[in-house]
Design a protein around this nucleic acid. Structure first.
Lengths: 227, 227
DNA sequence: CGGCTCCTTGAGGTTAATCAATCCTGGTGG
DNA sequence: CCACCAGGATTGATTAACCTCAAGGAGCCG
């Protein structure tokens, strides 16, 4: 049932069944495989999205071809809301894994906003969260790479630990797909990421095998996370 | 008249007189002098603001005392909307000049949102603009300092030229208050800013005296603005 | 004419990007 | 089963950007 999927998103979780049904009536689900482009910066925009399953990367392509990752969108989150009152996407999006997405057309959603103020309020709340998150991102980029990595790992740990109840062996967190992606997300290059992870490992801050990372010294990591 | 002031904000400019009156009924104006703290990160939040006159700085204080400027808020813009559904400010705010601010209590505004869906829609549009702007900010921080400065100056030129009709001598743009502030806004230090401005000047890209800057070679600046 | 603050200039050090090579690892075909 | 290959990940050496620290100006108000 689509409404069940919608309900998992903070954006929609506060809505009544009736309101959810109205949302469900205008959306369309989409299954996409890994590395599929959704839109590129400048494309005409007629929809925004929610991630039901998988992970999506939001990024900008700089003139010189390099790419700046703005955000990794997790299941339950939405992206592209900023085109609700614009006509083109300000950045590009691509799936990082196989995905199930909910596509929400802007025209129909705008009408819904007029009819159902609560939907608008939920959207405002969701956008407010995103603003806070982006503010953090700006702040982070002013920190040196080790601090950015430490923050990322600690956040990862938080989000994955609250999910699983087993917080006693709160050990394993999965790093994103490839380390190249992680480096991009942190605003650095794979070489530097590799060296920094190595330094952490040799300082006994973390244990690492493959893409599974375990934080051994939380206070130590927190210290590094603040410059 | 307060409604006249409100109307100057993109957030409110699309509203009917009736709706504006309802907004006006819940706000309060505030006059503040230069360098007045409005709130600090973590403060309990009960209002957001619009700048009627002056300039406000939004920033985060890092643990080590340094400060990361997130945004300079111009007249007509709002800030702090993200606390509408939160209870504490995620960053700090301080006036950069003498200011007239409109203070909008969150509780009353939330009620207004329910009664007047159009107000919510206007807010969503305003937040969407802000999201795009913050995305740009993240992108910018991945660029070297000269590119960030070039972008800043070009943007400044745009915004100030569209204001004044006199675009034939589109020369002078005023840099913000102090160069220290500008350096913070660009995510660098005054020394580097000084040197970079000097380099631009010696390359014939700009002319500079005091805080008045003139762009001499627009294509040249645009080239630098992309890496 | 001091004393202030702000800006600029210079020298040195640190961080992290770049370039180039090597090392894994998993998949493939012999 | 094993040699081989391709891609990503690591490591090393070099370079460039930018921060830091320290020392001059330049204006500004007493």
């Amino acid at each position: 049932m689509i409404t069940d999927i919608l309900k998992r998103a903070p954006l929609f979780s506060s809505l009544t069944d009736d309101q959810l049904a109205k949302v469900a009536a205008i959306v369309r689900t989409q299954e996409l495989e890994e590395e599929t482009g959704l839109f590129v910066q400048g494309d005409a925009a007629d929809s925004f999205y929610m991630v039901a399953r998988g992970k999506v990367k939001i990024f900008k392509t700089l003139r010189d071809g390099r790419t700046a990752t703005l955000r990794h969108v997790q299941p339950g989150e939405t992206f592209g809301e900023s085109v609700l009152f614009t006509d083109e996407y300000p950045s590009s999006a691509e799936t990082m894994t196989d995905c199930v997405l909910i596509k929400i057309p802007t025209v129909a959603f705008r009408q819904l906003l007029l009819a159902e103020p609560e939907v608008g309020i939920a959207l405002i709340a969701a956008m407010a969260r995103l603003l806070v998150l982006l503010n953090q991102r700006v702040e982070e980029l002013l920190l040196p790479v080790p601090a950015r990595l430490a923050r990322y790992v600690l956040d990862l740990r938080d989000s994955q630990c609250t999910m699983t109840i087993s917080c006693k062996s709160c050990s394993g967190c999965q790093l994103p797909t490839s380390k190249r992606e992680l480096a991009a997300r942190l605003g650095t290059v794979p070489e530097t990421l590799s060296r920094t992870l190595d330094r952490f490992k040799r300082s006994g801050l973390i244990a690492l095998n493959g893409s599974n990372i375990e934080v051994l010294d939380i206070p130590g990591m927190e210290r590094i996370a603040q410059r």
